[in-house]
Design a protein around this nucleic acid. Structure first.
Lengths: 143, 143
DNA sequence: CTTTCTGCAAACGATTTGCAGCAGC
DNA sequence: GCTGCTGCAAATCGTTTGCAGAAAG
């Protein structure tokens, strides 16, 4: 975590920005979460954070390459730490309650995806930079 | 295609609705597309379709299990035929132009995903119903 | 002091909805 | 007729932005 903040400070400075208290709060919140969070969820944990600051700072953090925007199933955008800070992972999406949790990527699966991506590049000319795997189902709590 | 319309008519009737000209247009457009479409894209192909009718009818078709809503990278929701009508596939998402194309799923990859899903159920209690794999990169045209 | 950051309130834009008229049964 | 469908225009709501003051360097 201290690591995340330090990296964040460096990357922000590289874009001419500072690591402010609001931004620290955002990063600590995302780092502690089991999966990507919506802005309402973040603000529920930290009501003192003004809505506009949350939105604005997440955009700044995104431009600095520290956080990442994730599209879920519902109408809310979700945010998580960038993969080089949080590690590569996939998402478990509960179709019943909308909750999104991280799962570490398995080596076998990664290998299969890489092989498929290579075949696609050969066949279509599409170059894969990264991938996104979501398992949609029912979480333990909703079962 | 005639098949799709016939199935659609049946499923709509099951929900107390009809297969109208507007709905037929929507389904034909989605069936002919190489990937999921945004509503603006659909309306560009068929400007005679009123915006509200497009939104409203896609919701009806979704409730009837004929089409499916997919979240992309940009702010627009995209629509495609339900998987039992279009076949299981994954998505190539161009990070540069936002375009989304379908690719057939490879058997090896599907096997790996199934194995990973089984391991996750054992470890976390999450039950996977289906999955979503997106390869994000640069399409041939943007390269 | 200059520049960035903040929070309020207003603006934006994709999507949804109310309503009056039209079409299918 | 009754019920559902359509299109217009207005409302909704997550998100973005303008602006004036506060904080950092």
């Amino acid at each position: 975590m201290g690591d995340v903040l330090e990296t964040a400070a460096t990357r922000l400075r590289g874009v001419g920005q500072r690591l402010t208290p609001n931004r620290t709060t955002l990063l600590e919140t995302l780092a502690a979460a089991p999966g990507p969070l919506t802005i309402p969820a973040i603000r529920e944990l930290h009501p003192e954070l003004a809505q506009s600051s949350a939105y604005r700072n997440l955009v700044v953090l995104e431009e600095a390459g520290i956080v990442h925007r994730v599209a879920g199933t519902d109408e809310f955008v979700r945010w998580e730490l960038a993969e080089d800070l949080a590690g590569h992972h996939h998402h478990l999406i509960c179709a019943s309650c909308g909750r999104v949790d991280d799962v570490p990527a398995s080596a076998g699966l990664e290998r299969s995806v890489a092989a498929a991506a290579a075949a696609i590049t050969r066949a279509t000319g599409f170059t894969t930079q990264h991938h996104r795997i979501d398992l949609v189902g029912v979480c333990r709590d909703c079962a």
